[in-house]
Simulated assay, not measured.
Amino acid sequence: MSDVTGIGVGGGDVLGERRRLTNLAYRLLGSLAEAEDAVQETYARWYAMPPERRDAVRAPGAWLTTVAGRVCLDLLGSARVRRERYVGAWIPEPLPDRREWGGGGGGGADDPADRVTLDESVHMAFLVVLESMTPAERVVFVLHDVFRYPFAEVAGIVGRTPAACRKLASSARRRVDTAGAAHAKPAAARQAGVVRDFKEAWEAKDIGALVGLLDPAARMAADGGGLVGTVLRPVDGADRIAEYLLFIAGKAPGLTLLERTVNGRPGLVAQHDGVTVTVAAFDLADDGRIGGIWVVRNPEKLRPWLAFGAAAASG
């Protein structure tokens, strides 16, 4: 993978590093809220230093990256414990592409969601694989393979030797390869067409069409966080997923489904009375059918989407 931002670790304006740090932290943590907290903590440590110490830092960008990486590493360790107690599946926080909402909301340049570059290193299938890694694997892999930091610099951030970091990166790559999360990106128009067909089949309650759009080995996971109702365990197989989707269609009248970009790929957003209540991300299998569906209903993870109301739905 190429450098997400094209920005190195050199100096420059300290506050100008915020976008790069947010990009890094989101990929490391899978949560926009936690990423923003990590970046805030990084800047807090920077400004807590006496002015003379800050002036002595030759490369502020490198300093900030090191601190942010260590903060995220610590957060990942505690997050693993919290997620073991999480109700149902834990799915990374989905991100909107505000440009397609026709001015229907958004916080502008100061909003953390607007600082995250929507590329292949944030598509949901990839983020879910990152969740399976150990904290050290994830930090090393993201820093080296996604952001292209040399192992010598990564070693200083995670407190390991360069050789140990190479082993961690290799282990992480095997996880990605095994999960198939690094397969070629489908053309946006191709995935958009499949998602549109899926939307229309769901609205028509056409179980045959739904089954035909799903890979036989497809898996669907949903995240309600214990705050809203949803399936607690992944649903496997095209037939079972289609049956569950029709069950939900009967239980959720009045929903409006919108075709919108989710983490850089075509997905669906469900709104009720103009309020976003569900965001669904999709991944296509090699045969072009849907292989993975990630449904986020936890309202705490939908905050970046709540600014988009009914006025934007027609955009």
Rank of each mutant, 00 (worst) to 15 (best):
I157A: 03
I157G: 01
V158H: 01
V158L: 08
G159R: 02
G159L: 05
G159Y: 04
G159E: 01
R160D: 01
R160C: 06
T161D: 03
T161C: 03
P162T: 09
P162C: 11
P162F: 09
A163E: 15
A164F: 01
A164T: 11
A164K: 07
C165D: 01
C165A: 07
C165V: 00
C165Q: 00
C165K: 00
R166D: 06
R166A: 10
R166I: 07
R166M: 09
R166Y: 06
R166G: 02
R166K: 08
K167V: 15
K167E: 15
K167G: 15
K167F: 12
L168S: 01
L168A: 05
L168F: 05
L168W: 01
A169D: 06
A169N: 11
A169H: 09
A169E: 08
S170P: 07
S170L: 14
S170N: 10
S170V: 09
S171M: 09
A172P: 06
A172V: 08
R173G: 06
R173T: 10
R173H: 12
R173P: 02
R174D: 08
R174P: 02
R174Q: 12
R174S: 06
R174L: 11
R174Y: 07
R175F: 12
R175T: 09
R175G: 13
R175I: 09
V176R: 00
V176Y: 00
V176A: 06
V176C: 11
D177W: 13
D177V: 15
D177F: 14
D177T: 15
D177A: 15
T178M: 12
T178A: 14
T178F: 14
T178D: 15
T178I: 14
T178W: 15
A179T: 05
A179C: 05
A179E: 04
G180H: 02
G180S: 04
G180I: 04
G180Y: 02
G180D: 04
G180M: 03
A181N: 01
A181S: 08
A182S: 14
A182M: 07
A182I: 06
H183V: 13
H183P: 05
H183D: 12
A184C: 04
A184E: 15
A184D: 14
A184G: 11
K185C: 06
K185G: 10
K185E: 10
P186G: 04
A187Q: 12
A187D: 15
A187P: 11
A187I: 12
A187E: 12
A187T: 07
A187W: 05
A188F: 13
